[in-house]
Simulated scan of single mutants.
Amino acid sequence: MDSTRVTANLPVTDIEAAKSFYTDFLGFRTEEFNMGWVARFTAPDGVTSVQLVTHDATAPEDSVMSVHTDDVDGAYAEAQRRGLQIVHPLTTETWGVRRFFVRDPCGNVINVVGHRS
């Protein structure tokens, strides 16, 4: 799998309460999106970002990071071929991404995501 971007998914209890810490203090100025349960904030460089997550809307567990790829279907097939534990199956979500969750050998849940063209 070729990773095109990695975003940390930080657990928070309240996105609005945490927002000013990440925007005003840490400098993540741009709110790329805010769906109520997940919001992404990006630094002025346009590359560095963080996602604040209260809970995942469709998956049974929350992920610690999102790994973006241009071939999410191929990544899913490779994860299956390797016998990795799939936590959330390959799904096309209503908000415009195709993704699955996989557990790493230490127990971390990773969101592998591709954006629809």
Score class of each variant (00 low, 15 high):
M1Q: 09
D2C: 08
S3Y: 13
T7F: 10
A8E: 12
N9Y: 10
L10G: 03
L10T: 01
L10F: 13
P11D: 01
P11N: 13
D14G: 00
E16L: 09
E16V: 10
A18M: 14
K19W: 08
Y22G: 00
Y22K: 04
T23I: 12
D24I: 04
D24T: 11
F25V: 15
F25E: 13
G27I: 01
T30S: 10
E31R: 10
E32V: 12
F33D: 09
N34Y: 12
G36L: 12
G36K: 12
V38G: 07
R40I: 11
F41I: 07
T42N: 03
A43H: 15
A43P: 13
A43Y: 13
D45F: 10
G46W: 13
V47Y: 05
S49A: 15
V50A: 01
Q51V: 10
L52I: 02
T54K: 05
H55A: 05
H55D: 06
D56V: 00
A57S: 07
E61M: 07
S63T: 03
V64H: 01
V67P: 10
V67F: 03
D70V: 11
D70H: 12
D71A: 09
V72P: 04
V72Q: 01
V72E: 05
A75L: 10
Y76V: 06
E78V: 00
Q80S: 05
R82N: 04
L84R: 12
Q85Y: 08
L90W: 09
T92Q: 12
T92S: 15
E93P: 03
T94Q: 13
T94C: 01
T94S: 15
R98W: 03
F101L: 02
F101K: 00
R103N: 01
D104F: 00
P105C: 05
P105W: 10
P105R: 11
C106Q: 14
G107Y: 10
V109C: 06
N111F: 06
V112Q: 11
G114I: 05
G114L: 05
S117N: 12
